[in-house]
Amino acid sequence: MNIFRLAGDMTHLASVLVLLLKIHTIKSCAGVSLKTQELYAIVFATRYLDILTSFVSIYNTLMKLIFLGSSFSIVWYMKYHKTVRRTYDRDQDTFRHWFLMLPCLLLALLIHEKFTFFEVLWTFSLYLEAVAILPQLVLLQRTRNIDNLTGQYIFLLGGYRGFYILNWIYRYFTEPHYVHWITWIAGLVQTLLYADFFYYYFLSWKNNKKLQLPA
């Protein structure tokens, strides 16, 4: 464990807790894409299949349980909670996210480190995580503005992957044979997807005005 990975995990934890807190406290999920949340639940479900078979550390297992629990809770709130579900903007959140999953699955069947059931699903979860934010970014473009908590959620989510890139660089230079091209490229693509959002987030923060994404 290094400081970059710890910062990344804490930022990731903060992003899901910020979102869960928002939805639980104000009983609203306005501006949040259910499609992105469903994709994240699938990302964690396919990423942590080995939670019962391979034990790394208490920290690792605890964080996996938190990520699984929070992502499925957010989906539950948005789909089934009597008050929250009414605030979900289903006509605007129309991204065909199943069309994202198929290419990720095909790519995982083609490019992976080992051709085993767990490894292919794990690789699928990496590719899916890279694009999972797209429905949320599309929703923001449509609604043309963004409330603070959703903005913080995306900002933290992008920051977590940025910290992970620093972690991969650190591990590459400090651990012999630590080479995971698939993880690195998927993580880089994911972070680049956030880059333009970060740019507009920074502009709105600098000019101290409401974040408006270009049409």
């Binding site: 391979s54 790394v56 690792n60 996996k64 992970y164």
Partner: peptide
């Protein structure tokens, strides 16, 4: 070895 490619990241 086995642990080198053990998935220790979240």
């Amino acid at each position: 070895g086995a642990d080198s490619n053990k998935k220790d990241e979240l």
